[in-house]
Design a protein around this nucleic acid. Structure first.
Lengths: 252, 252
DNA sequence: GAGTGGTCTAGACCACCGG
DNA sequence: CGGTGGTCTAGACCACTCC
């Protein structure tokens, strides 16, 4: 059985038509908040798109776009001839193009960073191919130990092309990598990543405080900016009892 | 330096306005094919949206939607005031809501399946909570060994609620799980999944032909249909030297 | 048949970028 | 300044689902 819901009337009072924030974004944000807070409960059916548009004084395409945002993120489900409903399942967290540092912050764990290595070296072959540069070109290599509430969680190894070799040890100890890049105006648009598993090597076991050859979770990621230029190649090792990757997938 | 490209003129000859296939989909499919084949090379700049629309006899919103599809999948990058370009990086494979069976098929490996267990049991607590049913409710439990070109790749354990307990051993040996469900009209819309790592347990090492307590890649997935009803809970173990998860992430 | 979302059109104005 | 994508409108017709 589906349930129609009367929304809190003031939910959409403060739509601002003059500011720079798109109308569809204002609508989808408020709708998301209402769903996550439970004001619109799981299973509830929304009004049809045209009716919503009339109530808010917005056109149907604008409403559709707002709804589509939430459909893409798995909060709403649309069915032709039926209507739009809030998803029944549990609340879905999103792990998108965020960094581990931000993941930990948002889950109320205090992140800490120790820089283990910080050096400019000639690019090894595999790094060069990921970054789209020539083998032997100068790259900045850093290796950090990331902790959460004092316990080691991951060993983060990253390589940067010549353009970005000026990252200081100090800022790397204090903030997440993607936060630093963002504040420099470097925007990451696309990333290819691979997640796998293997045994711990060398000093990895002792750094993560696990068995010397215990299992670790492995992620490789190459990040590109707007123009398709490689920004960074990362090779990260996670302690599997302290971290895993969660995602919500939505079929098209 | 960006390069303007003259597209193969016949690329969009066979647009069908009468059939059931949406115009934006016809455009984005052909565009994707042209990009993946290299006919439109990395870094090439597309014409502006209005010009494309005029050449194809389609409106700007339709063209925009076609382009947006490819932007969302990481094949194109749009910049305001600049234009739309093919991404510079390497070709991006997509691992979305497909099954392992289809992944293997599409990468030219011959998938094989052995059904190890196939039984109706009362739902254990953790399975019940994932499926949103009561502990002890009947569920179908299956356990399969998946091979590629004869080598073991994964142990696939799945649980289904009462509605779907009629999957036969035979069909499970021949086809992928999601293929079977789809042909029954069961569409998976949303899935929550978690990827982690641990040691192999019990018979897992011998089944996968690896060290008895070697590292394995672990995936848990709960899948929901249109109406938000749980369809399936899966707990999969992968041999890490034979499989890893590859994804392309696109920032919004 | 009535109601829903899915698609498509033909405009419009704006913000941002480059020369 | 001209060109680009980003947003928004007000319609239209269709396919699908339910009664």
């Amino acid at each position: 059985m589906t349930t129609d819901v009367h929304w809190p009337a003031q939910l959409f009072d403060d739509i601002d038509r003059t500011g720079p924030v798109p109308l569809y974004f204002q609508v989808s944000s408020r709708l998301e908040q209402a769903i996550r807070s439970g004001a619109i409960p799981p299973g509830a059916r929304l009004e049809n798109e045209i009716a919503i548009g009339e109530r808010l004084g917005l056109s149907r395409p604008t409403i559709r776009r707002a709804i589509q945002e939430l459909v893409d993120r798995g909060l709403l489900v649309r069915r032709r001839g039926i209507g739009t409903q809030v998803v029944q399942g549990q609340v879905t967290r999103q792990v998108e193009l965020t960094s581990l540092f931000e993941d930990l912050q948002s889950t109320q764990h205090a992140p800490g960073t120790t820089v283990l290595e910080h050096e400019v070296i000639p690019a090894p072959a595999n790094v060069a191919s990921h970054l789209g540069i020539a083998e032997g070109d100068e790259v900045l290599h850093i290796r950090r130990l990331r902790t959460a509430d004092g316990t080691p969680v991951a060993i983060l190894q990253n390589f940067f092309p010549a353009k970005t070799t000026d990252l200081s040890r100090d800022e790397l100890e204090e903030r997440g990598l993607y936060q630093i890049l963002r504040s420099r105006g470097v925007a990451i648009r696309i990333a290819n990543q691979r997640i796998g598993a293997r045994r711990a090597h060398d000093d990895e076991g002792s750094l993560l405080e696990i068995d010397r050859d215990g299992p670790v979770l492995l992620m490789e990621r190459t990040a590109f900016d707007n123009a398709g230029q490689a920004i960074e190649f990362g090779l990260h090792i996670y302690r599997p009892d302290r971290y895993s990757f969660e995602t919500t997938l939505v079929a098209k």
